[in-house]
Amino acid sequence: MNIRGVLIEDTFAEAFGMRGARVIITARDQRWAREAAHKMTGFATSVIACKVEAGIERELAPEDTPDGRPGISVLMFTMDSDSLAKRLIERIGQTVLTCATTACYDGLPNAPDRMSIGKPLRTFGDGFQSSKVIGGRRFWRIPVMEGEFLIEESFGKVNGVGGGNFLILANDAESALAAAEAAVDAMRRIPGIVLPFPGGIVRSGSKIGGKRYKSMIATTNDAFAPTLRALTATQLPDGVNAVLEIVIDGVDADAITAAMRAGIAAACREGVHSVSAGNYGGKLGPHHFHLREIMAEVA
């Protein structure tokens, strides 16, 4: 399969189940909502070391938020339910509660599976907090020096999908980056997904474990590292000198599929040799995203 001269490899991305939450942060203006969202999603690229994967899903217009103010939708993912609640409490408590003018709402109000988030955070109010039920949803008013911080009591959680991915194999680093940027721009328009790595792009794709350092959980993906072509069982075709990866977490497999379709289509441009994907032979995760199936309607 070729799209604009770019080979789509006959392979698949292997992804695994995660637990996900959507957090709506609103503020006086978009600037302060973004400040809180950037802080909340900082250091959240991979569960391997960050314990959580998170990113900004999209900006929200005032008419799309519970309080009629500008907002940001954030998605957070962990490997299990308990840790998702812990990470939310930590991060909202340290980055949203502390941020000027913000309020914090559940972005999955219809999810039947609930976590208590505002309730434990209310204790920051030291007994001066109060609650309000509005439209069947309970909110906590926590007094702060600026006035009050408002947070919803419970947040929904869903069975999400983490680790959707594809690899852009390019003739040179500039072409790889340009293609990856184009892919990220296209994918960020798709709802229900986040790209947790810096700028949505990973340059240091990894393999499980290490050949030399046995204690390592993950080490460099030497098969796709161009400088190791002579030393390892390379998977790089001739002429490929740089590879970048896009990693996707989503609220469900359909969202990942849609994002991969948009991203790969945008990445197929001059200077790109082929698009591949990372998998572990089907042993790691239950979700397999076959590139050629996904791109069939585009090709």
Binding site: P66, I134, G135, F139, R141, G147, E148, L150
Partner: peptide, 29 residues
């Protein structure tokens, strides 16, 4: 005690307008 903008009232007014079809003065927010 103070003059401020209670955040829960914004949620209440949005809710009343959107879900209960109550006419809300935009200046109140």
């Amino acid at each position: 005690v103070c003059t401020y903008r209670p955040p829960h009232l914004a949620v209440t007014l949005v809710y009343l307008r959107a879900r209960r079809d109550v006419a809300v003065n935009a200046a109140w927010n």
